[in-house]
């Protein structure tokens, strides 16, 4: 299969043409979060012939993801495969010309700069504002353009952050990070798949425009609600006192990294990331935990269920603790079953 034939329809489109297609083939894009938004973005950019895609996701696939996360199958869910790996496997069969790098990890202050530094563009598929604050700061620091996208219930929003001198950054749009619990979650608000498809498609369209140098790149905030039949474009001004884009203070990025816990959107789960990341000894843990309940291991994770406790442990020591109400309960299980 020749590239020229594959991309014939979009090369014919005057907005892209031969020159635009060449730029796409040379572009490097990092998609952080390969859930509902990220799978649609990755699918479209892969089919469009973006030369390099880095797919970053900390999570594994569950049955409840299948309603909207378009690259995954029932088998992926039954095996609890990591999202980044499953997405990369699928896309490598769609377009073998694209170089795809899956990364199963949490994007956090210790690794975000490494994840984004060699990319031309970052696309947001994450489910929390903490990571978006980090992406915003890292992208501003390294002058890398990024596209925000978020969706819940029947509504969503997207905006480009282009690192232009007079343009706002995400912190101008959202001056303070909401406290955990201070905004609805996927659990409480739900989500219908047309809105994730629409927001992801807008993000993809803006990505294609940015990467090909189109003049029509949007500089406005777009909110859409598919149940209320509305699309609203809003102007966002740069905050002259913004800590990030006015004063270059990167408070989230520069905060010392330590062990932390995070509630996972759409699940009754908490992620525990230990301060010292080191390879988990699956064999030793399997032998110990096997006396307490059912243990299944693959090269991607160890699953434990028993004694009223359920969790998944990744090879780097990161764990997802299921069916717990709060961080304290999650940390207790981590300490008792996995160890410090």
């Amino acid at each position: 299969m020749t590239g020229k034939e594959r991309y014939k329809r979009q090369i014919t489109f005057e907005g892209i043409g031969e020159a635009g297609q060449k730029k796409l083939s040379e572009a490097r894009v990092c998609i952080i979060g390969t859930g509902a938004l990220g799978t649609i973005i990755a699918n479209s950019l892969c089919r469009s012939g973006v030369g390099f895609l880095r797919l970053v996701d900390r999570d594994y696939i569950e049955e409840t993801n299948l309603q909207r996360q378009t690259l995954f199958t029932e088998w992926d869910a039954s095996e609890n495969r990591p999202k980044a790996i499953a997405a990369a496997d699928h896309l490598s069969k769609v377009n073998s010309e694209v170089q795809i790098e899956p990364i199963v990890d949490d994007a956090n202050a210790s690794n975000i700069e490494r994840l984004i530094k060699d990319a031309d563009l970052i696309l947001d598929g994450v489910d929390n504002f903490e990571t978006r604050f980090l992406i915003n700061e890292a992208c501003h620091k390294h002058k890398i353009r990024w596209i925000y996208g978020g969706a819940a219930a029947s509504g969503g929003a997207t905006m480009n952050f282009l690192q232009e001198d007079d343009a706002p950054c995400f912190r101008c749009l959202m001056p303070e990070m909401p406290e955990p619990g201070a905004y609805p979650t996927c659990n409480t608000a739900g989500v219908v798949n047309p809105i994730t498809g629409i927001i992801a498609s807008y993000e993809t369209a803006e990505a294609l425009k940015i990467l090909t140098g189109a003049e029509s790149v949007s500089r406005r905030y777009l909110a859409v609600d598919v149940w209320d039949n509305l699309s609203e474009y809003i102007d966002i001004e740069k905050n002259p006192d913004c800590p990030v884009c006015a004063h270059r203070r990167y408070e989230t990025l520069d905060s010392p990294f330590s062990s932390y816990a995070a509630a996972l959107c759409g699940q009754d789960s908490w992620q525990i990331v230990p301060e010292n990341r080191r390879a988990a000894d699956f064999d030793a843990l399997s032998a110990r935990l096997g006396r307490l309940g059912e243990v299944k291991t693959s090269k991607f994770l160890l699953r434990f269920r028993g004694d009223g406790v359920s969790f998944k442990l990744f090879p780097d020591g990161r764990a997802m603790i299921d069916e717990v109400k709060d961080e304290v309960a999650a940390r207790k299980i981590y300490a008792e079953y996995i160890g410090q």
Binding site: V126, F129, G150, G156, T185, D235
Partner: peptide, 26 residues
């Protein structure tokens, strides 16, 4: 009037106010 506003902005006759939620999920 389709521009993000400070909460302290004083409204003028004919102004249109739109209220937006946080779009968080991914």
């Amino acid at each position: 009037n389709d521009k993000k506003s400070e909460l302290e902005r004083i409204l003028q006759p004919g102004d249109s106010v739109k209220v937006f939620p946080r779009s968080f999920g991914g």
